[in-house]
Amino acid sequence: MTAGRDDDALTWEGDDDPTLDIGASAPAPSEASADEVESDADSTTVLPEGFTAVGKGSEQFTAEADADQTEVISDRDAGGAASASLGNAALIGLGVLGGIYLLYAIGWIVGGLRLRGTAQFLVSPIAYDVAMWLAAASPVIWFAAVHLLTRTSPVWMRLAWLAAGALLLIPWPFIMMGAIGR
Protein backbone atom coordinates (compact mmCIF):
# COMPACT_ATOMS: atom_id res chain seq x y z
CA MET A 1 0.00 0.00 0.00
CA THR A 2 1.41 3.39 -0.95
CA ALA A 3 1.37 6.42 1.28
CA GLY A 4 1.02 9.02 -1.48
CA ARG A 5 -1.57 11.76 -1.36
CA ASP A 6 -2.95 10.71 -4.75
CA ASP A 7 -4.18 7.44 -3.28
CA ASP A 8 -6.39 9.02 -0.63
CA ALA A 9 -10.06 8.09 -0.76
CA LEU A 10 -11.10 11.73 -1.07
CA THR A 11 -8.97 14.37 -2.68
CA TRP A 12 -9.86 18.02 -2.75
CA GLU A 13 -8.59 20.81 -4.92
CA GLY A 14 -5.73 22.43 -3.08
CA ASP A 15 -4.60 19.24 -1.29
CA ASP A 16 -1.17 19.64 -2.86
CA ASP A 17 -0.74 23.00 -1.12
CA PRO A 18 2.76 23.03 0.42
CA THR A 19 1.51 24.72 3.59
CA LEU A 20 -0.45 21.56 4.43
CA ASP A 21 2.74 19.53 4.87
CA ILE A 22 4.18 21.48 7.80
CA GLY A 23 4.93 18.35 9.81
CA ALA A 24 6.88 16.71 6.97
CA SER A 25 9.44 19.51 6.66
CA ALA A 26 10.12 19.97 10.40
CA PRO A 27 12.13 17.39 12.32
CA ALA A 28 10.46 15.58 15.19
CA PRO A 29 11.05 17.18 18.62
CA SER A 30 12.94 14.13 19.85
CA GLU A 31 15.37 14.34 16.92
CA ALA A 32 16.13 18.04 17.33
CA SER A 33 18.68 19.16 19.86
CA ALA A 34 17.97 21.92 22.41
CA ASP A 35 20.20 24.36 20.51
CA GLU A 36 18.24 23.82 17.29
CA VAL A 37 14.93 24.37 19.08
CA GLU A 38 16.18 27.63 20.60
CA SER A 39 17.47 28.86 17.24
CA ASP A 40 14.13 27.96 15.62
CA ALA A 41 12.26 29.92 18.30
CA ASP A 42 14.45 32.97 17.69
CA SER A 43 13.96 32.95 13.93
CA THR A 44 10.60 33.85 12.51
CA THR A 45 9.14 32.69 9.24
CA VAL A 46 7.02 34.98 7.11
CA LEU A 47 3.68 33.53 6.06
CA PRO A 48 2.19 34.29 2.67
CA GLU A 49 -0.62 36.82 2.50
CA GLY A 50 -3.94 35.42 3.71
CA PHE A 51 -2.46 32.73 5.98
CA THR A 52 -2.57 32.89 9.77
CA ALA A 53 -0.62 30.62 12.09
CA VAL A 54 -2.54 29.35 15.09
CA GLY A 55 -1.89 26.81 17.79
CA LYS A 56 1.25 25.39 19.30
CA GLY A 57 4.42 26.74 17.70
CA SER A 58 2.67 29.60 15.91
CA GLU A 59 5.00 32.11 17.55
CA GLN A 60 7.71 31.37 14.99
CA PHE A 61 5.49 32.54 12.15
CA THR A 62 4.74 36.19 11.47
CA ALA A 63 2.37 37.80 9.04
CA GLU A 64 3.75 40.15 6.42
CA ALA A 65 1.68 43.04 7.77
CA ASP A 66 0.81 42.85 11.46
CA ALA A 67 -1.19 46.07 11.20
CA ASP A 68 -3.47 44.51 8.58
CA GLN A 69 -4.05 41.52 10.86
CA THR A 70 -5.08 43.72 13.78
CA GLU A 71 -7.47 45.65 11.51
CA VAL A 72 -9.07 42.40 10.36
CA ILE A 73 -9.45 41.19 13.96
CA SER A 74 -10.96 44.50 15.09
CA ASP A 75 -13.38 44.52 12.12
CA ARG A 76 -14.45 40.98 12.97
CA ASP A 77 -15.03 41.91 16.62
CA ALA A 78 -16.95 45.06 15.67
CA GLY A 79 -19.23 43.08 13.35
CA GLY A 80 -20.16 40.67 16.13
CA ALA A 81 -23.69 39.42 15.67
CA ALA A 82 -24.11 41.03 12.26
CA SER A 83 -21.50 38.84 10.60
CA ALA A 84 -22.44 35.66 12.44
CA SER A 85 -24.39 33.18 10.38
CA LEU A 86 -27.70 31.77 11.52
CA GLY A 87 -27.90 28.24 12.86
CA ASN A 88 -30.00 25.48 11.35
CA ALA A 89 -32.82 25.88 13.87
CA ALA A 90 -33.01 29.63 13.25
CA LEU A 91 -33.13 29.11 9.48
CA ILE A 92 -35.90 26.55 9.84
CA GLY A 93 -37.79 28.90 12.17
CA LEU A 94 -37.44 31.77 9.70
CA GLY A 95 -38.64 29.53 6.88
CA VAL A 96 -41.68 28.35 8.81
CA LEU A 97 -42.61 31.87 9.89
CA GLY A 98 -42.02 33.15 6.36
CA GLY A 99 -44.41 30.49 5.08
CA ILE A 100 -46.99 31.51 7.67
CA TYR A 101 -46.70 35.13 6.57
CA LEU A 102 -47.13 34.11 2.93
CA LEU A 103 -50.28 32.17 3.83
CA TYR A 104 -51.50 35.19 5.80
CA ALA A 105 -51.08 37.44 2.75
CA ILE A 106 -53.06 34.96 0.63
CA GLY A 107 -55.70 34.72 3.38
CA TRP A 108 -56.09 38.51 3.48
CA ILE A 109 -56.57 38.60 -0.30
CA VAL A 110 -59.09 35.74 -0.39
CA GLY A 111 -61.01 36.98 2.67
CA GLY A 112 -61.01 40.57 1.41
CA LEU A 113 -62.34 39.56 -1.98
CA ARG A 114 -65.11 37.55 -0.30
CA LEU A 115 -66.19 40.59 1.74
CA ARG A 116 -66.12 43.03 -1.19
CA GLY A 117 -69.86 42.85 -1.91
CA THR A 118 -70.83 43.26 1.76
CA ALA A 119 -68.39 46.11 2.42
CA GLN A 120 -69.74 48.27 -0.42
CA PHE A 121 -72.65 49.19 1.83
CA LEU A 122 -70.25 50.60 4.45
CA VAL A 123 -67.40 52.31 2.54
CA SER A 124 -66.64 53.40 -1.00
CA PRO A 125 -65.22 50.71 -3.29
CA ILE A 126 -61.93 52.61 -3.80
CA ALA A 127 -61.35 52.96 -0.05
CA TYR A 128 -62.13 49.28 0.44
CA ASP A 129 -59.72 48.22 -2.31
CA VAL A 130 -56.90 50.35 -0.86
CA ALA A 131 -57.51 48.97 2.64
CA MET A 132 -57.74 45.39 1.39
CA TRP A 133 -54.44 45.56 -0.52
CA LEU A 134 -52.69 47.26 2.40
CA ALA A 135 -53.98 44.50 4.68
CA ALA A 136 -52.75 41.88 2.20
CA ALA A 137 -49.32 43.53 2.08
CA SER A 138 -49.03 43.92 5.86
CA PRO A 139 -47.59 40.41 6.54
CA VAL A 140 -44.91 40.92 3.89
CA ILE A 141 -44.10 44.39 5.21
CA TRP A 142 -43.91 43.09 8.80
CA PHE A 143 -41.59 40.22 7.82
CA ALA A 144 -39.27 42.52 5.83
CA ALA A 145 -39.24 45.19 8.56
CA VAL A 146 -38.41 42.70 11.31
CA HIS A 147 -35.71 41.11 9.18
CA LEU A 148 -34.08 44.46 8.38
CA LEU A 149 -34.44 46.07 11.81
CA THR A 150 -33.13 43.09 13.80
CA ARG A 151 -29.99 42.39 11.75
CA THR A 152 -27.68 43.10 14.68
CA SER A 153 -30.02 41.73 17.36
CA PRO A 154 -29.90 38.21 18.74
CA VAL A 155 -31.76 35.56 16.77
CA TRP A 156 -34.27 34.96 19.56
CA MET A 157 -35.38 38.60 19.35
CA ARG A 158 -35.99 38.32 15.60
CA LEU A 159 -38.01 35.15 16.09
CA ALA A 160 -39.98 36.74 18.96
CA TRP A 161 -40.96 39.73 16.81
CA LEU A 162 -41.95 37.42 13.96
CA ALA A 163 -44.06 35.29 16.32
CA ALA A 164 -45.75 38.45 17.68
CA GLY A 165 -46.55 39.52 14.13
CA ALA A 166 -47.97 36.07 13.37
CA LEU A 167 -50.42 36.57 16.23
CA LEU A 168 -51.18 40.17 15.33
CA LEU A 169 -51.75 39.79 11.59
CA ILE A 170 -54.17 36.85 11.54
CA PRO A 171 -56.42 37.21 8.45
CA TRP A 172 -59.76 37.53 10.26
CA PRO A 173 -61.92 37.98 7.12
CA PHE A 174 -60.71 34.63 5.83
CA ILE A 175 -61.22 32.91 9.18
CA MET A 176 -64.69 34.39 9.76
CA MET A 177 -66.04 34.08 6.20
CA GLY A 178 -63.98 31.18 4.92
CA ALA A 179 -62.96 30.59 1.35
CA ILE A 180 -66.23 29.07 0.20
CA GLY A 181 -69.08 30.58 2.17
CA ARG A 182 -70.52 31.60 5.49
Score class of each variant (00 low, 15 high):
Met1His: 07
Ala3Pro: 00
Gly4His: 02
Gly4Val: 00
Arg5Thr: 06
Asp7His: 09
Asp8Cys: 08
Asp8Gln: 05
Leu10Pro: 09
Trp12Cys: 09
Glu13Lys: 08
Gly14Gln: 01
Asp15Arg: 07
Asp16Lys: 09
Asp17His: 06
Asp17Val: 03
Pro18Cys: 01
Asp21Glu: 13
Ser25Trp: 07
Pro27Gln: 02
Ala32Gly: 05
Ala32Gln: 12
Ser33Pro: 10
Ala34Asp: 12
Asp35Arg: 13
Asp35Leu: 13
Val37Glu: 04
Ser39Ala: 15
Asp40Met: 07
Asp40Cys: 10
Asp40Glu: 12
Ala41Asp: 12
Asp42Arg: 13
Ser43Ile: 03
Thr45Leu: 09
Thr45Ala: 06
Val46Asp: 07
Leu47Ser: 06
Leu47Met: 05
Pro48Cys: 04
Pro48Arg: 04
Glu49Val: 03
Thr52Asn: 02
Val54Met: 11
Gly55Glu: 05
Lys56Glu: 15
Lys56Arg: 11
Gly57His: 04
Ser58Pro: 05
Glu59Met: 03
Gln60Ile: 08
Phe61Cys: 01
Thr62Phe: 09
Ala63Arg: 14
Glu64Asn: 11
Ala65Val: 10
Ala65Met: 08
Ala65His: 04
Asp66Lys: 06
Gln69Leu: 15
Thr70Tyr: 07
Val72Asn: 14
Val72Asp: 13
Ser74Lys: 15
Ala78Glu: 15
Gly80His: 11
Ala81Arg: 15
Ala82Lys: 13
Ala84Cys: 06
Leu86Ser: 14
Asn88Tyr: 10
Ala89Arg: 13
Gly93Asp: 01
Leu94Arg: 10
Leu94Ile: 02
Gly95Trp: 11
Gly95Val: 08
Leu103Gly: 12
Ala105Tyr: 04
Ala105His: 00
Ala105Lys: 00
Gly107Glu: 01
Trp108Asp: 00
Ile109Asn: 00
Ile109His: 03
Leu113Asp: 02
Thr118Leu: 12
Thr118Cys: 10
Gln120Gly: 15
Gln120Cys: 11
Phe121Ile: 14
Phe121Ala: 15
Phe121Gly: 14
Ser124Cys: 05
Pro125Cys: 11
Pro125Tyr: 07
Pro125Val: 08
Ile126Leu: 14
Ile126Ser: 14
Tyr128Gly: 07
Tyr128Leu: 04
Asp129Met: 06
Val130Arg: 12
Ala131His: 05
Ala131Thr: 12
Met132Val: 06
Trp133Arg: 10
Leu134Asn: 04
Leu134Tyr: 00
Ala136Gly: 01
Ala137Lys: 02
Ser138Ala: 12
Val140Asn: 04
Ile141Asn: 02
Trp142Lys: 07
Trp142Gly: 02
Trp142Ser: 06
Ala144Glu: 04
Ala145Ser: 05
Val146Asp: 06
His147Arg: 15
His147Phe: 07
Leu148Thr: 08
Leu148Asn: 08
Leu149Glu: 12
Leu149Asn: 09
Leu149Thr: 13
Arg151Asn: 09
Pro154Leu: 11
Val155Trp: 04
Val155Arg: 07
Met157Pro: 00
Arg158Glu: 10
Arg158Thr: 14
Leu159Val: 10
Leu159Gln: 11
Leu159Ser: 10
Ala160Met: 13
Leu162Ala: 05
Leu162Asn: 03
Ala164Ile: 10
Ala164Lys: 02
Gly165Ala: 01
Ala166Trp: 07
Leu167Gly: 15
Leu167Ala: 15
Leu168Lys: 00
Leu168Asp: 00
Trp172Thr: 06
Pro173Asn: 06
Pro173Gln: 12
Phe174Ile: 07
Gly178Trp: 01
Ala179Gly: 13
Arg182Ile: 00
